Measured scan of single mutants.
Amino acid sequence: SELMNSSKLIRMLEEDGWRLVRVTGSAHHFKHPKKPGLVTVPHPKKDLPIGTVKSIQKSAGL
Score class of each variant (00 low, 15 high):
Gly37Cys: 06
Ser26Asn: 13
His29Thr: 14
Glu2Trp: 07
Met12Gln: 09
Val39Cys: 04
Leu13Asp: 00
Leu3Ala: 13
Trp18Gln: 00
Val21Ser: 08
Ile50Trp: 15
Ser26Met: 13
Thr24Asn: 12
Glu2Val: 07
Ser59Cys: 12
Thr40Pro: 04
Gly51Phe: 08
Ala60Pro: 02
Ile10Ser: 02
Arg19Cys: 10
Gly61Trp: 03
Gly51Val: 10
Lys8Leu: 12
Arg22Glu: 09
His32Asp: 01
Gly61Gln: 07
Ser55Gln: 13
Ser55Arg: 14
Ser1Glu: 14
His28Trp: 12
Lys34Cys: 13
Ser6Asn: 02
Arg19Thr: 11
Ile10Leu: 05
Leu13Pro: 00
Ala27His: 15
Val21Cys: 10
Thr24Phe: 10
Pro49Gly: 09
His28Val: 13
Glu2Leu: 08
Met12Trp: 07
Thr40Ala: 12
Arg19Ser: 09
Thr40Trp: 15
Asp16Leu: 05
Arg11Phe: 08
Ile50Tyr: 09
Leu48Asn: 01
Val41Gly: 00
Phe30Gly: 00
Leu62Ala: 04
Lys35Met: 03
Ser7Leu: 12
Pro42Met: 06
Lys46Cys: 11
Trp18Phe: 02
Ser7Phe: 15
Pro36Glu: 09
Asn5Thr: 13
His32Ser: 02
Glu14Pro: 00
Ala60Tyr: 01
Gly61Thr: 03
Glu2Tyr: 08
His29Lys: 10
Gly25Lys: 14
Leu13Cys: 02
Gln57Cys: 15
Glu2Thr: 09
Val39Trp: 01
Gly25Met: 14
Ser6Val: 03
Lys34Asn: 12
Val41Arg: 01
Ser6His: 03
Lys31Tyr: 08
Thr24Arg: 12
Lys58Leu: 14
Gly37Glu: 05
Arg11Thr: 12
His29Cys: 11
Ile56Trp: 01
Thr40Cys: 12
Pro42Cys: 05
Lys35Asp: 01
Pro36Phe: 09
Lys46Asn: 15
Val53Pro: 01
Gly51Ser: 14
Thr52Trp: 08
Arg11Tyr: 09
Val21Ile: 11
Ser59Met: 13
Pro44Met: 04
Lys31Phe: 07
Leu20Pro: 05
Ala27Phe: 15
Leu20Met: 07
Ser1Leu: 10
Leu20Trp: 04
Ser26Thr: 11
Leu3Asn: 13
Ser55Phe: 11
Thr52Tyr: 08
Glu14Gly: 06
His32Ala: 00
Pro36His: 09
His32Gly: 00
Ser6Lys: 02
Leu9Arg: 01
Phe30Arg: 00
Asn5Cys: 15
His29Trp: 15
Ser6Pro: 03
Lys35Ile: 03
Val41Leu: 05
Asp16Val: 06
Leu13Met: 06
Pro44Ser: 06
Lys8Arg: 14
Lys45Asp: 08
Ala60Phe: 01
Leu3Trp: 07
Val53His: 02
Gly25Ala: 14
Arg22Asp: 07
Ser1Cys: 14
Glu14Ser: 07
Glu14Tyr: 13
Gly51Pro: 06
Arg19Pro: 00
Thr40Asn: 06
Asp16Cys: 05
Ser55Met: 12
Arg19Met: 12
Val23Leu: 06
Pro42Ser: 05
Asp47Ile: 15
Thr40Arg: 14
Thr52Arg: 07
Lys31Asn: 09
Ala27Val: 09
Glu14Ala: 08
Ala27Gln: 14
Ile56Met: 02
Arg22Ile: 08
Val23Gly: 05
Pro36Ile: 08
His43Lys: 02
Pro42Thr: 05
Val41Asp: 00
Arg22Trp: 15
Asp16Ala: 07
Leu20Ile: 07
Lys46Gln: 15
Gly17Leu: 03
Gly37Phe: 04
Lys8Ala: 14
Thr52Gln: 11
Leu38Trp: 12
Leu48Thr: 03
Glu15Ala: 11
Glu14Phe: 08
Lys54Pro: 02
His43Gln: 02
Leu62Gln: 04
Val21Trp: 13
Arg19Trp: 08
Lys34Gln: 11
Pro44Asn: 04
Ile50Asp: 15
Ser1Arg: 05
His28Ser: 06
Arg11Pro: 02
Arg22Thr: 07
His29Asn: 07
Leu3Gly: 14
Pro36Met: 08
Arg22Met: 11
Gly61Arg: 05
Pro49Glu: 07
Leu62Met: 08
Leu38Asn: 08
Leu48Ser: 01
Asn5Asp: 15
Pro42Asn: 05
Asp47Tyr: 15
Gly37Lys: 05
Val39Phe: 01
His28Tyr: 11
Phe30Leu: 05
Pro33Lys: 08
Ser55Tyr: 09
Gly17Glu: 05
His32Phe: 01
Lys46Arg: 07
Thr52Ile: 14
Ala27Pro: 01
Gly51Leu: 11
Ile10Cys: 04
Phe30Thr: 00
Met12Ile: 12
Gln57Leu: 15
Arg11His: 11
Arg22Cys: 11
Met4Cys: 11
Val39Gln: 03
Ala60Ile: 05
Leu38Glu: 12
Pro33Val: 06
Gln57Asp: 02
Lys45Ile: 09
Gln57Tyr: 15
Asn5Leu: 08
Trp18Ser: 00
His43Ser: 03
Asp16Thr: 04
Leu13Tyr: 01
Phe30Met: 06
Arg11Asn: 10
Leu20Gly: 02
Pro44Thr: 05
Glu14Asn: 09
His32Cys: 02
His32Ile: 00
Gly17Asp: 04
Met12Phe: 07
Gln57Met: 15
Thr52Ser: 06
Asp16His: 07
Lys58Ile: 13
Leu9Val: 08
Val41Pro: 00
Met4Ser: 10
Pro49Met: 05
